[in-house]
Design a protein around this nucleic acid. Sequence first.
DNA 1: TTTGCATGTTACTCCAATTAACATTGAGCA
DNA 2: TGCTCAATGTTAATTGGAGTAACATGCAAA
Lengths: 220, 220
Amino acid sequence: MNRERHVVSKTEKNKRYHHGDLRNALIIAAATLIEERGSEDFAMIDAARRAGVSSAAPYRHFKDKTALLEAVLEFAFFTLGLEAEACAAKEEQGSVDAIIAIGKGYIRFVTGHPQFYSLMWGDSSLRQVAKPDHNASSSGFYVLEDTVRAWCLKIGRSDEDALALSIKLWAMAHGLSGIAMHGHIDRFLPGADVYALLESTTHTFLEGVKHSKPGSGLAL
Amino acid sequence: MNRERHVVSKTEKNKRYHHGDLRNALIIAAATLIEERGSEDFAMIDAARRAGVSSAAPYRHFKDKTALLEAVLEFAFFTLGLEAEACAAKEEQGSVDAIIAIGKGYIRFVTGHPQFYSLMWGDSSLRQVAKPDHNASSSGFYVLEDTVRAWCLKIGRSDEDALALSIKLWAMAHGLSGIAMHGHIDRFLPGADVYALLESTTHTFLEGVKHSKPGSGLAL
DNA sequence: TTTGCATGTTACTCCAATTAACATTGAGCA
DNA sequence: TGCTCAATGTTAATTGGAGTAACATGCAAA
């Protein structure tokens, strides 16, 4: 029996009693299951199986299923932040194109990972999560904010409204993503393209900003 | 025993074998539970109890819990539509104020019923629901569209872009609602008011529309 | 080495969804 | 009238999955 410990067969090559990185393995497993099943309604034991452990093991790392989902949520926000950074880096800093690129990246991420979207914006029981730390969820926003701030200065304008503008731009991308993902664009405006809609909306909005007086209620 | 059928006590006054309107009673019960518990994660049997029937009775009206949730979803969209209508009716038809009022109504509904929001925008397994019929979910949008169309004509402009504009305005209100509800506005722009943000965003955007050339990529 | 704590395991318990089999009622028809 | 059926309810399972208890393993520090 105990010999087996040393004479490891091919199939059980990686089977040590202690996983080594179970916490992260479970997060990945859960994320994958969510992608596959199209909802966060997977069985804990399936995540455990994927990670190659028993059904009770996950509870050493996560208080309950919600805690695991929260970790996946954090992971999703983190990934989104990286995406935003990559998008912005490809364009001229402070350009309208950079702002649009970030927005398009947002849409691409959201529509490409609809299950994560549900996790991030859907479940009210996880809504609390957004509070405590979320460096992860913040990073993406700060990329946008920097870009908007640079744009403000570039058009010869104070950047005092940059924060409010960023929120508004975020809201546009976020709103269009959600509406698109739920098929409402296809329904009401068949043939329209979300990315094109984002682009025109952004242009129109920024045009409106240019024509507005600073401090005239823009940055409430 | 059978005498009891006629000698009905006060406490069992309303207890007939057949409920009479169980389907709707269950929808209301479920909606109430969702409001109370703050999530759609209520027990089927609780909804049944509220409606005064046994745990299995709901399955005569709904294939499964998801089907019941779908019905609640429809109900929520319907309510939202009524809300939009009421908001628009209070303002001058085709005015910017009317557009803003609808947006504010949207935000009020969403932030006032966060659980419904989850139902409408969160769960991917219910996303399909939006497809088949949804007269309910449409009505609110058409109220907005009519208003926008009137606005276009009022500013001496073709209303060819009204549909696209409506989608964009919806997206703004929707995006701001979601972001606000998840505490991101408090986080990034403490002290800001969603309603004020919606108002300024709408003004800025419509200003941008006025300054844009019709057909210049606005209505993609 | 030995011991302690983190991490896993197996074997429950419990809860809630769903189903099966049977009961009650009302509506339409002989 | 009174019978019969379809719709709607009821009770009593079955099932699946979350979470827990008690025990096992192994790494790491003394």
